[in-house]
Nucleic acid binder design. Structure first.
Lengths: 332, 332
DNA sequence: CCAATAATGCTCAAATTGAGCATAAATAGG
DNA sequence: CCTATTTATGCTCAATTTGAGCATTATTGG
């Protein structure tokens, strides 16, 4: 049996629920850690996958880990053979769907983490690979033109029309418009999860078909590459978090090499955001925030006037990582 | 029993594909749900506690719950006898400290949630009570003057001076300055967790003494009321999240009665933020965002010119809850 | 030398923010 | 009734931030 952690707490709980806690041994569950490990290489945002790109890497929670974050950090580092700059908890899932998938053994809890790193060529074990995250979310890349993938607009309309009653139809239409920036609204790059969930509900991604959700377009579009279980949803959560984070905390730096040009930096931010930025304003922001300093060297010619190389200012970064900063600027 | 500690990617993949998951039962753990349940009553932000205010309410994760969030919602609703407007996951903890405290039964995972509601007088079971959250964080309330509690400034200096070497001392000094808005910096009301963690490390809260952390001030200040385990840290996480959230999402409304004056609304936001707002600007913002509409009625006299009563616009709220909004305005 | 590609410096208008002034409408106390 | 007090509410203004563009400079490849 389980020793009581805090007797006072237990009795209070008895007050609250009229049942002794000890009989209610908090459900024995199994726990795994799932990582969304991100790098940006050559202007492409990439995520580490296993199983031919159909799963995110995951590992069991083990008792020797000091904490969940330490556990994630340690097994990801062992697998990729280089240190993670940044690790942040994303979300904890424990739906009964998962439970069913486990054959009724017990509830499975998945604790997901976002981690940032730089891609290193040869360090991966077999089966693991870096994938362009837009393979999974083609509708999220607006760097070349803001057009949605072809079947989407019509499919969204069909979904909205399939609402049970006029109010539901209106609500669906509005929801699609907000999520996808339709009807004159502007695209909000942070709504990654909302968009994926909408597409799932509308039956427009393979996972929905797998889970028996209907689609009102024929042939049913199957947008983006699918993943097992709910890994694509977790990836969407990670992308959304990262897109939000770069606007107020200087996390891009975790993804950059030691020295880089301002355009390199801009391309990386654009890769993550899926949107182009106004070059001069981007520079103004970066310099005004004093996040970088010149190395004194110039970049090897890249087809135009040579650019200065910069590095991060460790002192400022530390401060900003702690207290936040100001956002960059969207634009086409 | 438990499977491997940190599988290589290849084996992780096997784990996911080739073997039935059931054999690889990732570490068996016990899971509990902890709630930070917040209400604002008469200009005071309150949190629901049990055990004489020393614990947050918590309940075991139970198999009948459809999801973690549904589980939290259902047991909190059963205890408080009224529906939660808003529930959001905060953080998942599983430190080995907890493990030890549980007598080695196995790792305990705590999944914490933030929930918003309105306080209702008579619905609590014995042992539970609403507490002013500033009882736990007196340094967080800047509504009357921006002065920190008396022993704080000197204690922070002492902590900084106790750094092992000049670099450490400088880093500590800067960290304290950022967290507490010293040396001409401005107070950032969202750094609730950072401040609590700093005070813990500096030995200035009772939990630190309990956990054997030294303090460099005598007599050691014991700022704010203590809580069991790491509940005060969880509460700090909840407050920080809520303070951040109100600046870009209209969650205050979950805390308000059906109709209210603009000053009521402002007082509630101020209670959460721990800072006073500029009245005219607050109104400008609220009205410009079209979050509320007049009910046509006036408030019962409160000592001055009668104020119009407002209610929320459900349509707008829904949209903003989904896509976000603009921030309000700090000021003294 | 010319075209193409980047880097970099500068300007400008619109929108947002922070702060204050002034007035109106009530109540409480004499 | 008059006055001080308290709140509501309308309006202005300057500083800053944001979004967008123009112009110039430095290279490379014909």
């Amino acid at each position: 049996m389980r020793a009581m952690a805090a007797p006072g707490l237990a009795s209070a709980r008895r007050h609250l629920r009229n049942k002794p806690m000890i009989e209610n041994r908090p459900g024995s569950v199994s726990a795994e850690l799932i990582a969304v490990l991100v790098a940006v290489t050559a202007g492409t945002p990439r995520v580490l996958t296993i199983a031919e790109g159909t799963s995110l890497p995951s590992g069991p929670l083990s008792p020797e880990h000091r904490s969940l974050q330490a556990g994630t950090r340690s097994w990801v580092e062992r697998q990729t053979h280089h240190p993670l700059g940044y690790v942040e908890q994303l979300y904890t899932f424990a739906d009964n769907d998962r439970n069913a998938a486990l054959g009724g053994f017990g509830r499975a809890i998945s604790i997901s983490y976002l981690a940032l790193t730089r891609e290193q060529p040869k360090t991966l074990d077999g089966g693991a690979s870096w994938r362009n995250w837009y393979d999974y979310f083609p509708w999220e890349d607006h760097r070349q033109g803001a057009d949605l993938p072809a079947p989407l607009p019509a499919a969204l309309r069909a979904w909205a029309q399939a609402g049970a009653n006029p109010a539901a139809r209106r609500a669906r239409k509005q929801r699609a418009a907000i999520a996808f920036g339709l009807e004159g609204r502007r695209w909000n790059e942070e709504l990654v999860l909302q968009r994926y969930e909408l597409l799932y509900e509308a039956g427009l991604v393979s996972e929905a078909a797998r889970d028996g959700i209907a689609c009102h377009t024929t042939p049913a579009p199957r947008l983006g590459h699918a993943m097992r279980q709910d890994h694509r949803r977790i990836l969407a959560t990670g992308i959304a978090r990262l897109r939000a984070k770069i606007t107020y905390r200087p996390v891009v730096f975790e993804l950059m090499p030691p020295s880089f040009t301002l355009l390199d930096l801009q391309r990386s931010v654009e890769a993550l955001a899926g949107q182009l930025l106004h070059k001069q304003n981007f520079r103004r922001l970066v310099e005004q925030q004093a996040l970088v300093e010149e190395t004194g060297q110039m970049a090897g010619a890249t087809g135009g006037r040579p650019a200065k190389l910069f590095r991060f200012r460790a002192d400022i970064l530390q401060e900003r990582a702690y207290a936040g900063t100001k956002p960059p600027l969207p634009r086409a």
